[in-house]
Design a protein around this nucleic acid. Sequence first.
DNA 1: ACAAAAAACGAACGGTCGTACTATTGTGGC
DNA 2: GCCACAATAGTACGACCGTTCGTTTTTTGT
Lengths: 217, 217
Amino acid sequence: MSPQALKARKGEETRAQILDAAVQQASEAGFESLTIGSLAERTGLSKSGLFAHFGSRTDLQVAALDEASRRFTEAVFLPALKAPRGLKRLRALFENWISWPEHANLRGGCPMQAASAEYDDRPGPMKDAVVERQRHLARELAKAVQLAVASGELRADTDARQFVFEMFGLVLAYYHTQRLLGDAGAAARAIAGFDRLVGAHRAPAAKSPTRPAAARR
Amino acid sequence: MSPQALKARKGEETRAQILDAAVQQASEAGFESLTIGSLAERTGLSKSGLFAHFGSRTDLQVAALDEASRRFTEAVFLPALKAPRGLKRLRALFENWISWPEHANLRGGCPMQAASAEYDDRPGPMKDAVVERQRHLARELAKAVQLAVASGELRADTDARQFVFEMFGLVLAYYHTQRLLGDAGAAARAIAGFDRLVGAHRAPAAKSPTRPAAARR
DNA sequence: ACAAAAAACGAACGGTCGTACTATTGTGGC
DNA sequence: GCCACAATAGTACGACCGTTCGTTTTTTGT
């Protein structure tokens, strides 16, 4: 009846609401806290009514992780694609990565990070899903670093995976310091760290982007 | 009767065994996984028998966290005190920090890190305890950085807290990469990052330790 | 408007959770 | 060897867990 409800067969709409509540809760208390009962109460559904949408609790957790991952891409990667390739885009990725939980109204912090900590030692469908997403993230970030090398902004001998490793560290330290210790200066520290990281790999000023300077050693 | 059991009134011995199992399990599955039942089965005690040692589940969790923290200090800080103050000690701290879960036979990774991720959003006695330990850790590390400044190995304008923030990041990235992704090269990446971090703050070669070079800007 | 299909409900199951009680066993000092 | 007490076991409780099943309500296509 509603104008836009041409294909959303009502069930999907409810499912989306459930997943919204689930991502919210996972952000605050982790994916292991996603129980049928608590989520049913949160959404106003009955336990059995909610359960029917997923078939099992594990499937619900995986669906919530997928939704969180989708939002991560939407909030971090898509906007960064508007920035020109190279350092500008890399910096946009870093800043979006740090700030996306706030912008996505996830008061409990990045759910992907929560999932990583929860399942790094628990084999199963959830760990598999988490690992796959994190590998994908690392690959995409490495690509962005390579683009900054190709554009001549970073030195040709830059180790992209090492660079990504250290970026990861800065983000994790930010989450840790900001959320656990409540340190308001954490964002500035993370940015400063990123600046230093970039500075250590910056190519000596040269305007020609396509032809990377020969590795000088 | 046993020679050394002069004061360990048997109950304390049992309690120690329980906490050993608890720390082990917390390392693998987090402190929220510490249930009376599972721990009772693991130790061969009855639920009520185990329960009597702590009075409540929360007290058990806090006791397990204390024990984990004690072992952390024992494995990371105490050995590092044997190294001479300055860069040597700082590097020892970093390397011990990274490798202590293995050395302490904690196959599930650093329990302090697990606790940080679990309780950063759940107010209560556990969060209070975790925050206090992490603040303490950050303070002690900052002191070690300051000693390296005082010895003239690091530049006088080194921001100790920023340095610690980035050290933290490298350790977190190591745990993340090593445990979740199973990347065997993670340790090398972490060390490389630390080297770069030190290199960025290293004072220009000068042998006089006590008199820090005037900040040159 | 009506029938078919989808969605949500309500009650019940076996299990585990933390915790409170009482009873039984084991240990340590004399 | 005995006694006081510490340590452990046993049992029971209410609450919540994931899941199943049969029923009822709501939505959808015509």
